Computed example of a mutant assay.
Amino acid sequence: MKRLLAAMLLLAAAIAHAGQNCEPKPMTVDEVRRSLDLAERSMQALDASGAQVAIIARAGQNLSQYGLRYSHVGLAWRDHPAGRWVVVQLLNDCGTADSALYNDGLGNFFMSGLYRYQALVMLPSPEVQQRLAQVLASRTPLRLHEANYSMLAYAFSTRYQNSNQWALETLAAASAPPGKVETRAEAQQWLAEAGFHPVGVDVGLGARVGARLFRANVAFDDHPTGPRLRGHFDTVTVDGIEQFVRSHDRGAQILEL
């Protein structure tokens, strides 16, 4: 176990985490241990559920000032025939304006400098899980990916995309009737018709100016003018996804670890 922790520490120190601002901050032994413990508990919960696909969230940042508990979601997919869990996720490339899709193990998913060692696991109904598995095995996730990244991407615009938005739009492709969602615009239209309402965030003027001047991965120009000037941004958050899953997918189960 000590050798494993030492190896993971070296890995954590060497990797510039996607989705972070790439400040060199090695994880401590305790942080590595707690992250791996959360990954193991998540794997046990997923195995016990009998699920094919789950939506899994981590608390990588303190977003309590915005009334949010979790910061990032990925789609956990049981990789057959190997049977291991793979998390498909969109990650921002080190604070740039670019993003890419990644396949990671549960350990890597939680080895990101967590703010809180808790996970949210959303288990869609079996029918949606089956469709999600089919979607993830196709080229649809790539078609629904927009490389232009913004942390505050507007929920109903295709100009930018954030990590949670990609996961939600992929869920839309699996939840809609076959063939109805092939593009991001179609995914957003289906979500609006299905009753998705973004959990908006309010950002003060000082924070907006600082973010726009000094952070390449934040943009505001895709948002409607009125709310934008008031500092209100309807973006896709984990809380918004959870609310939509609870209201739209009656067969879904929600677990908190």
Results as ranks from 00 to 15, higher is better:
residue 117 Y to A: 09
residue 112 S to K: 14
residue 71 S to C: 04
residue 190 W to E: 03
residue 28 T to H: 04
residue 174 A to Q: 05
residue 125 S to T: 05
residue 101 L to A: 06
residue 221 D to P: 00
residue 58 R to P: 03
residue 64 S to D: 11
residue 128 V to L: 07
residue 128 V to N: 04
residue 148 N to Y: 09
residue 100 A to F: 11
residue 116 R to L: 06
residue 243 Q to T: 13
residue 96 T to H: 07
residue 89 Q to F: 03
residue 85 W to A: 03
residue 207 A to Q: 10
residue 189 Q to I: 10
residue 202 D to S: 15
residue 73 V to Y: 08
residue 246 R to D: 11
residue 170 T to L: 02
residue 73 V to A: 05
residue 25 K to C: 12
residue 229 L to M: 14
residue 56 I to W: 00
residue 9 L to A: 15
residue 10 L to R: 15
residue 147 A to T: 13
residue 208 R to W: 00
residue 55 I to Q: 06
residue 80 H to S: 15
residue 178 P to T: 06
residue 160 Y to K: 10
residue 76 A to R: 00
residue 89 Q to V: 13
residue 45 A to L: 11
residue 96 T to S: 14
residue 82 A to M: 15
residue 9 L to F: 00
residue 236 V to H: 01
residue 86 V to G: 05
residue 247 S to H: 15
residue 153 A to T: 07
residue 38 L to Q: 02
residue 125 S to V: 03
residue 162 N to V: 06
residue 22 C to F: 04
residue 123 L to H: 00
residue 162 N to C: 08
residue 163 S to I: 01
residue 44 Q to K: 15
residue 127 E to S: 09
residue 136 L to H: 01
residue 7 A to C: 13
residue 87 V to G: 00
residue 240 G to W: 02
residue 198 P to Y: 00
residue 232 H to L: 12
residue 70 Y to C: 04
residue 153 A to Q: 09
residue 122 M to Y: 00
residue 52 Q to F: 07
residue 218 V to D: 02
residue 232 H to K: 14
residue 45 A to C: 11
residue 159 R to G: 10
residue 14 A to K: 02
residue 223 H to P: 07
residue 94 C to T: 09
residue 235 T to E: 02
residue 57 A to H: 06
residue 127 E to Q: 14
residue 201 V to Q: 08
residue 86 V to H: 09
residue 58 R to G: 03
residue 34 R to M: 12
residue 177 P to D: 01
residue 84 R to P: 04
residue 30 D to R: 13
residue 142 L to I: 08
residue 225 T to P: 13
residue 234 D to K: 04
residue 91 L to K: 14
residue 38 L to F: 01
residue 186 E to R: 03
residue 126 P to S: 06
residue 48 A to P: 12
residue 234 D to C: 10
residue 82 A to P: 08
residue 18 A to G: 14
residue 232 H to M: 11
residue 192 A to E: 14
residue 227 P to N: 09
residue 85 W to C: 05
residue 231 G to S: 02
residue 118 Q to W: 02
residue 12 A to N: 15
residue 128 V to H: 06
residue 20 Q to G: 14
residue 56 I to Q: 00
residue 108 N to F: 07
residue 222 D to Q: 03
residue 117 Y to F: 07
residue 49 S to W: 01
residue 53 V to K: 00
residue 57 A to S: 12
residue 1 M to D: 14
residue 123 L to S: 05
residue 84 R to M: 12
residue 8 M to V: 12
residue 166 W to Y: 05
residue 73 V to K: 05
residue 24 P to E: 02
residue 60 G to C: 01
residue 220 F to E: 12
residue 71 S to N: 08
residue 1 M to S: 15
residue 10 L to Q: 15
residue 7 A to F: 10
residue 72 H to E: 02
residue 104 D to P: 00
residue 179 G to Y: 09
residue 207 A to M: 09
residue 163 S to K: 01
residue 190 W to S: 03
residue 157 S to T: 09
residue 107 G to V: 08
residue 257 L to C: 10
residue 41 R to T: 10
residue 105 G to I: 06
residue 147 A to W: 13
residue 246 R to C: 11
residue 26 P to Y: 05
residue 32 V to N: 06
residue 19 G to C: 01
residue 238 V to P: 04
residue 76 A to N: 02
residue 129 Q to S: 02
residue 197 H to D: 13
residue 103 N to S: 12
residue 183 T to L: 04
residue 94 C to P: 07
